[in-house]
Amino acid sequence: MSPLALVASGSFEPPSAYDFWHPLVGDGPFALTRPMILIAFSVLVLAVFFLVTSNRRAMVPGKLQFAAEGVYGFVRNGVALDILGRREFRPYVPMLFTMFTLILVNNVFGIIPFIQYPTFSRIAFPIALTLIVFVVYHAIGIRRRGLGGYFKSLMPAGVPIILAPLVYLLELATYFITRPLTLALRLFANMFAGHMMLLVFALGGEYLLLHTDSVVLQAASIGSFLMFILMTFFELLVQALQAYVFVLLAAFYIAGSLEDAH
């Protein structure tokens, strides 16, 4: 971030994972970091926004209320109702709605000026949400079928007896390793890579413009900045998409546990 380092070294220092480490107070495992502040800020913003917009309850909504209801209706009908079914979707709406809005806002932080930091590019936050999804869908399954019944239900029906142990191992791995791992990693990696790409174009452009002697290279910085702007819009798309994908998959996993027969 700081051009001083680049000047000092004299050669271009590409952005690294280190650019995501922003400790504010302390430096250890429980240091107060910038993404902590950001996620707390997002919680405050979301809580205030939705408390205000949901409190109006006008029959004919204004712009803000309409937008808030649109987001809520999208998660409620487009995700929860569609995937979980009319009978059982209600209890999971708050969780899916909270996750969607939290991820969306924190992702969009990545391109908001002066914030410019996608909180979920720190893997701890995707892991926190995945942990909740993981616990919820296993808890539902165990509560519905009992512990033994749940583990028995993980076995798909109609598998030949010879293949059964292998298939069962794969299923176990799917439910306990692959699903949570991919859920967390997908969100983290998208945000991490996207932000890294923006850093490359921003820092690269800056380096070309300010720290090179050649006019050709300085002119090339225009391309770098243009790419930065283009990628910013692309990032907005990815950020919204990843928020949607996360709740969509969470709903799928929950729906799998809600199903009567496996």
Binding site: I39, S42, I123, A124, A128
Partner: peptide, 13 residues
């Protein structure tokens, strides 16, 4: 993962 961030993430959620 940073342990403090996991905790804050859970609390925020």
């Amino acid at each position: 993962p940073h342990p403090g961030e996991i905790i804050i993430g859970l609390i925020a959620f």
